[in-house]
Simulated scan of single mutants.
Amino acid sequence: MKLNTKSLLLPLVALIISILGVGLIDPTFLRPAVLINLFADSATLFIMAIGLTFVIMTGSIDLSPQAVAALASVVLALLLPNLGGWAIPVALVVGVVAGAMSGFTYAVLRIPSFVATLAMGGIIASLTLYLSDQRAIQLDAALRSETLRWAIGRTFGLPNEIWLSLAVLIIALIVEQATPFGKAEKAVGFNEFGARANGIRVLRVKLIVFMIGGFFAALAGIVLAARLAAGSPTISNEFLLPAIAAVVLGGTALTGGAGGVLRTLLGVMLIAVFRTGMNFAGVNVLAQQIVFGLVLVLAVGLSIHRSPDNIVK
């Protein structure tokens, strides 16, 4: 397993500077307990961003994760009373199916991923509103404690969200760095025609990355539902832009072929620190979305190589 440590240096330095900067504004931010809670609160964003990383690495984009996360939270809340813990794999399968539908629309029907996933996100959001009757569905406290303890509470003194994020990171790293699929994914993003010429089944790779994205979006929705004790059609609103910004800010190129999940971890931490700094400064949530949009434009602008014959896809 090979990791490019030099490529991680810039976002790592930016993260350290950001943490110290917010610490100058409010010294309590540097307390270990505060930083631990910050990392735990970022778990759902990180999980969603991991799924997006796999998609973006192929040079595609997925605009449906927040809709998939909301659907998974509602499916979990509806099924938990009757199925108990089995509601969790059902919600995850729903996410995988949603991702497969986006992948099919993009890869097989050859509709641009932007359009395919934007349309799929709208369909999923409407389905979620129908299933939930446009309301939040509360989770029974006893069932929540019994079946979702792995997503809430603490183990060995640390929030379970941190342990879950660590497990997700390790699995994603193994898939990315130590499997033929990980190499094929990067090859497709770097040069799709060259990948096809070398015998890589490009269509299958595209389908799988969207299914992975759907799985992690659903997992993020389940964790959100566990944390908030409810499934809701609006539970993951305002998550998409920060998730994409985190992937790109960490150094994964929107054109594909470069980046990875470890970079996304740093990007998520940067977003979390930015958000905390803005909260300390009294910036409201809507204004924060503007900031994330500007950060995304800046990060993409700095990462894309421009020349007269370069094509921005």
Rank of each mutant, 00 (worst) to 15 (best):
G214M: 07
P11G: 03
T5Q: 14
I311M: 09
T105A: 15
Q138L: 12
N284D: 14
A220W: 00
S7V: 08
S42Y: 03
L173N: 02
I152R: 10
P159T: 10
L139S: 08
L83V: 13
A98H: 04
P11Q: 00
A98C: 15
M1E: 04
I162D: 00
A136G: 15
G267K: 02
L12E: 04
L45W: 03
F54G: 00
L207S: 04
I290V: 15
L294V: 15
G293H: 06
V209M: 04
R263N: 07
P81L: 07
F181K: 01
M48T: 11
I16H: 13
G95V: 06
I171V: 14
S102V: 11
V68A: 04
I222R: 02
A70N: 11
S42Q: 10
Q177W: 08
S303I: 10
V300K: 11
G121A: 09
G231T: 12
E238H: 13
H305E: 14
I222F: 05
L164C: 02
L10A: 14
Q138M: 12
T117W: 08
M120T: 14
F280S: 12
V94T: 13
D62E: 09
L240F: 09
A225D: 08
T128K: 03
V247S: 02
D62M: 12
Q134D: 13
A116H: 04
L166F: 13
F274L: 15
E176H: 02
I290M: 14
D133Q: 14
L10R: 10
P32V: 04
Q288H: 06
A142N: 12
D140G: 14
S232C: 13
A142C: 01
K2H: 13
L52K: 05
R306Y: 12
S236A: 15
G51L: 01
L203K: 15
A87K: 06
A107S: 07
L63D: 00
E238W: 09
V261T: 07
L166G: 02
D41S: 14
P27T: 13
R263Y: 09
V268D: 00
L109G: 04
T128G: 05
L203P: 03
P11K: 00
F29W: 10
V97G: 02
D133P: 09
L173H: 00
L286W: 08
V108C: 06
E176P: 00
A40N: 11
A107H: 08
L15T: 07
A258Y: 06
T128P: 04
F292Q: 08
A116T: 07
I124T: 08
L3R: 07
V75R: 09
D140A: 05
L228D: 12
G194H: 08
G99H: 07
A245Y: 01
L45Q: 03
V223G: 06
E146A: 15
L127T: 10
S102H: 10
S102M: 11
A230S: 15
T105H: 09
F29A: 14
L296I: 10
I25W: 10
A187N: 05
L262A: 10
G95Y: 05
S7E: 15
S236W: 11
I61H: 02
A281Q: 05
A172C: 04
K186E: 06
F181E: 01
I56K: 03
V205N: 04
L166T: 03
A87N: 09
T5F: 15
